[in-house]
Nucleic acid binder design. Structure first.
Length: 570
RNA sequence: GCGCCCGUAGCUCAGGGGAUAGAGCAGCGGAUUUCUAAUCCGUUGGUCGCAGGUUCAAAUCCUGCCGGGCGCGCCA
């Protein structure tokens, strides 16, 4: 059931349109751009006037006459060229807010048609450290999975690990010839990375090493038991490391089927596509050509190399087949970087040609840049390890807490540092439009001012503080009355929560939710400054406590949908 | 060469057919015997890259150009 102001007004507007013999599907209502024009507006009269070649203002009058405002809003006002403006009645806002404060879903409706959705994200490579390149996929994918779940969809979060690449030849060779057991004990990923790098360097000067490493890879692929056992070790050790990162970030997967899982399916798949005339041989490789799609016309999709090896696209197609068979999903979302857009266009086109019935979406995103506006790297030019980045976030947050609130216990400080530091990193990602490249800046994301996680968390802390002081003296159950403009503004904002959350999935835009939460926190802070809660009395006090309750619930729920926690103190 | 993405305030970015284009930061001016000032209020600041087009209405849609990023058979 959807009882957001937008849905309620929209329903009534559609009824009015019907009463005027106008098509009700034009009855969309949007939040007003400017509060001077009320809370919500509709452009229906102008759009319909154009379609029916009539006068927009006259049409607006006609619609307004049929509009049953009930107790929801004042009679609609007609303004400008034919806008219909709606101003919610405080009594109605009050009642809705009271409901929101007691609603486990904070007024967010569930999807009309629940879907089964596979979200493919994170996908780090075995035997390599997770680095900043994985952070956007991980955080964005997790947030989308959380939001989809909350909206009532069935979500399968799948981590498509890079566990079968050519890197294993090198690592296997290194493992057999250069392994430092003690180093492996201390920091497995670091040691694996060292092996990879050393062998890579050796290969440059020694063709014999190159040949030997290649041989190790072939042996692994043929199922050699020794290499297979080492590989399993690599996967196990890497996963342990990844799991540590995911635990810190609060990221969960329902499935973690890496590339290796699909290996056996690749050969038969290619043969089938060849036999079915879907793919063809060209210059010794097996390709799909898409002359009918202009963007792909001169860009073949390779699924088998001339040396018999398989490619990225091959695995992705096998993965789609498997997933469709296993889960029968309505949609699969791939949360990977924008540079892979062409690849996914090809894979999606291939899947379409294969007749696979599923909606495939590439949720692309931009790059993280350093202060120099180039891809973020360490001083030595390497990728920044994710673990180090998270450590620094927590450590910086710890410093801030130490400075601001030194009297907290060590345990509290540590807990808060984690929630604030990691929240800041996540929020910096999610508050940004996913397609834009963004400049990574510690001071900016950890600032207590502006559109940051700590700012939102601080709003929650203030509320927690009020309830702490309140103690047993509940009094939270009261009618909401608005004696100041700040109270009404906050209430109206809170009711929009249910309008914003579903919007996020329309274009995979968590930044819309982040934006809303920022505006909500902002409205709360203004309310907090203007309206004493504990010092007020009677009905006003009870009313303000309800506003606080509704605010904390919305902020907490909203942040939780972004995968961000809320401390009680900071 | 082809394709995708981006160009909005000094800086970082929202807004993706509707009203006088918005935030944050920085700048300037105010508010504190505090329910956590880690905040709030006010204010300065814009040929929405350029040029056409569609429309009653364009930052938003279309076309072309300029500038930047990325990608384009045998990596993922």
């Amino acid at each position: 059931m959807n009882s957001t102001p937008q849905a309620v007004l929209g329903g009534r507007l559609r009824a009015a349109l019907q009463a005027c013999n106008l098509p009700p599907e034009r009855g969309d209502v949007t939040a007003a751009a400017d509060t001077r024009f009320g809370d919500y507006q509709s452009n229906a009269a102008m759009i319909l006037a154009k379609e029916t070649r009539s006068n927009p203002r006259a049409l607006a009058v006609q619609i307004a006459e049929k509009f049953d405002a009930g107790d929801v809003c004042d009679p609609p006002e007609i303004a400008g060229p034919g806008f219909l403006n709606f101003r919610l009645r405080p009594e109605w806002v009050s009642r809705r807010l009271r409901e929101l404060a007691e609603d486990a879903r904070c007024g967010v409706p569930t999807a009309d048609k629940p879907l089964r959705i596979i979200v493919d994200f994170s996908s780090p490579n075995i035997a390599k450290p997770m680095h900043v390149g994985h952070i956007r996929s991980t955080i964005l994918g997790d947030a989308l999975a959380r939001i989809a779940r909350f909206l009532g969809h069935e979500v399968v979060a799948d981590n498509h690990l890079g566990d079968w690449g050519t890197q294993f030849g090198k690592v296997l060779y290194g493992w057999k010839h250069l392994l430092d057991r003690a180093a492996l004990e201390r920091d497995p990923i670091a040691e694996m990375t060292r092996l990879y790098r050393e062998v890579n360097a050796l290969e440059q000067t020694d063709p014999e090493v190159h040949r030997a490493a290649r041989q190790e890879l072939v042996k692994l692929q043929r199922g050699d038991s020794e290499n297979r056992a080492i590989w399993e070790q690599l996967v196990k050790l890497s996963w342990k490391e990844f799991q540590g990162v995911y635990d810190r970030l609060g990221v969960r997967f329902d499935e973690r089927l890496g590339e290796s899982f699909y290996d056996a399916a690749l050969g038969p798949l290619v043969e089938r596509l060849l036999a079915g005339g879907i793919a063809e041989i060209s210059e010794g490789a097996v390709c799909l050509f898409f002359p009918e799609i202009p963007a792909l016309a001169d860009k073949p999709c390779l699924i088998r190399k001339s040396d018999g090896g398989f490619l990225y696209a091959t695995t992705d197609l096998a993965t789609i087949e498997y997933r469709v068979g296993r889960w029968k999903p309505d949609a699969v979302w791939y949360v990977t970087g924008a540079p892979q857009q062409l690849h996914f266009q090809q894979v999606f086109a291939a899947a379409a040609r294969m007749g696979i019935p599923v909606r495939l979406e590439h949720v692309a995103f931009g790059s993280i840049l350093g202060e120099d506006r180039k891809l973020m790297k360490t001083r030595s030019g390497d990728n920044v390890p994710l673990r180090d980045l998270l450590d620094e976030a927590v450590s910086r947050a710890r410093g801030m807490i130490e400075e601001k609130n030194p009297s907290l216990s060590a345990e509290e400080k540590e807990n808060i540092a984690n929630v604030v530091g990691l929240g800041a990193v996540k929020y910096a990602e999610l508050s940004q439009h996913r397609m834009s490249d963004y400049v990574f800046s510690w001071p900016k994301m950890l600032s207590l001012q502006g559109n940051t996680a700590p700012y939102l968390q601080n709003a929650c802390v203030r509320i927690h503080s009020i309830f702490r002081k309140l103690g047993d003296d509940s009094g939270g159950a009261g009618d909401v009355t608005f004696t100041t403009k700040e109270e009404l503004a906050l209430a109206r904002k809170l009711l929009q929560f249910g309008e914003v959350v579903p919007l996020v999935l329309r274009e995979f835009r968590p930044n819309l939710l982040a934006n809303f939460l920022f505006e909500t926190a902002n409205a709360f802070h203004a309310f907090y400054e203007a309206c004493p809660v504990l010092k007020s009395e009677g009905a006003t006090r009870r009313s303000r406590l309800v506003l606080c309750e509704a605010s904390i619930r919305v902020l907490k729920q909203g942040l939780d949908l972004l995968g961000i926690g809320v401390p009680e103190k900071m």
